[in-house]
Amino acid sequence: MSFYALLIAPFVDFGFMRRALVACLALGLGSGPIGILLVLRRMSLVGDAMSHAVLPGAAIGFLVSGLSLPAMGIGGIVAGLAVALLSGLVSRTTALREDASFASFYLTSLALGVLIVSLRGSSVDLLHVLFGSILAIDASALILVGAIASITVVTLAVIYRPLVAECFDPGFLRAVSGRGPLYHLLFLLLVVLNLVAGFQALGTLMAVGLMMLPAAVAQLWVRGMPALIAVSIVTACVAGYAGLVISFHSGLASGPTIILVAGGLYLLSLLFAPSGALRRLLPQRHFARREGR
């Protein structure tokens, strides 16, 4: 099989593969930086919880208009935001910490979502909702994913400084501007938007995969915010492309393949990256101090 037939032909020959690829690249562009910020804010699990929280909204969208991605997307945005705000409220007004309240909310909403889907749909529909249908992305869903990626990148560029300041030293930002909670809220909104975009492609259970895995990979290789974000985006896009190619040629389900490729990149990084396991295990000679020169 030639290089062309292996790597490029699937996208030239089939429209659904092209749309899937564009969706993956857009997804990587938005989810890459969001994932880095989630990790730095120590909110990895919150992202996971929120991805499940999207489900009941999407399920109601499904109930109303069948397997239409935009309708399910809008439902997901509403539900995800509601859960994010509610759990923020609960952690501020009760003794529960934010992660605990997120866990309670997402378990409830996951159960509710599955229940709603099974009210009307078949188990195939349920599989679609849980694991996504990236090959079934149509033009309107593609526009939604693209719009979300654009909004994410532009918003992050605008609120980058206060967001980073709030992560690094929240006390300082409160003292100089007092608008920390606003930026936190905007960030949560971006997380929900990206999860909805990921939900279209990868399903509610794995939407967070293209956020967290590339972020973890980036952390193993580089330091400094710009480099972290760049590596994270590239990793997500590579995983998306490679996952699509592999799933096309071997007839595997594409969503899980994409996440598995990202997981494979993570394992490789664990072994070979500068702050990975192998470097830690092998003894390294340090530089000798030059004396008297």
Binding site: L40, C167, F168, D169, V176, R223, G224
Partner: peptide, 26 residues
């Protein structure tokens, strides 16, 4: 203890946060 010292920020950028009154958030 309230500051995350492992945060991937450079020394120069950290100091420049002090110019917030002039630079503002944006």
């Amino acid at each position: 203890a309230e500051i995350d010292r492992s945060f991937p920020l450079s020394v120069g950028d950290t100091v420049l946060l002090g110019a917030w009154r002039q630079s503002g958030a944006f």
